[in-house]
Design a protein around this nucleic acid. Structure first.
Ligand code: MN
Ligand code: MN
Ligand code: ZN
Ligand code: ZN
Lengths: 139, 139
DNA sequence: TTGCACATTAGAATCATTCTAAATTTAGGC
DNA sequence: GCCTAAATTTAGAATGATTCTAATGTGCAA
């Protein structure tokens, strides 16, 4: 089959089931899936306009919110910078390079779970996790 | 000696050495140390005014920035809410209750370190970490 | 004590995001 | 296919946390 990471099936829409599909939501989701570099809403807007010139920034915000609330996409927050959007639903954190602002995924080690490194108080139900690192890249 | 957590020495200023001390910075730092509930800048402002009526919100922002840049205090960010401020310099994450907005410290398990649960790419130098959880508290 | 680099202040500016209200579109039932 | 109700899209205004500006005040090293 010769699979590799670039073979990712962009048309696997299982995560969109139950979400009313509109041309705009499809376009916003496709933008996120095709270049997975954690764009801001404005960057998504710029990319979406290439295929759909009439789309508005307000709609991009609305679509992103719908996708996030549906669980198809995750928001990433560094300090109080613009929110960024990530379609990777596996357990992972993020690293932002201080020079360039670039954000990359940092996978959770296989088998690692929250309780292994955090002393969670009894009786808490965790619904969302953000693990965000910032720093420099050597080279 | 009969020590417990409430005996914390609020006058240990070792973390402030090298920072030019002003009445306002002292007051802002004291506000954070005396009630460690992760207040926002506006909440710090309200509390600081009790002891120092003339202090301005701009100054509170300036003092908080100076303390953060000096490493005496940490910023905590949930989504795009107002930044919150934490004087606990031990390794820990934060949990925010979705109902009340309350933020509590979540200690890192003793001996746990980043590399134990994250697959960090080679050559990254991590300067800052935020581990932020949101959810509900049972009872 | 003095000088001056740095800090404080009020108010304006910024800007990512949310809100508003009117026009349009979706999806289901016929 | 057509109709309807509910949801979505849109342009533009509003919001609000934070940063900036420029005038005034102060910590502190010499
Ligand atoms: Mn939401
Ligand atoms: Mn800073
Ligand atoms: Zn990601
Ligand atoms: Zn804390």
């Amino acid at each position: 089959m010769n699979h590799n990471i670039t073979d990712f099936d962009h048309s696997d829409d299982s995560k969109l089931e139950g979400l009313r599909m509109t041309r705009q939501r499809r376009e916003v989701y496709d933008v996120l899936m095709s270049l997975r570099d954690h764009p801001t809403a404005s960057e998504v807007y710029e990319r979406a306009k290439a295929n759909m010139p009439g789309i508005s920034l307000a709609t991009v915000y609305n679509c992103l919110e719908a996708l996030v609330d549906h669980g198809a996409v995750r928001q990433v927050h560094f300090e109080r910078e613009s929110s960024r959007y990530c379609p990777n639903l596996t357990a992972h954190g993020h690293f932002q390079d201080e020079q360039s602002g670039t954000v990359i995924d940092v996978p959770l080690k296989k088998g690692a779970s929250l309780g292994d490194f955090l002393d969670l108080p009894a009786g808490v139900q965790v619904n969302n996790i953000e693990i965000n690192l910032t720093g420099k890249i050597s080279n």
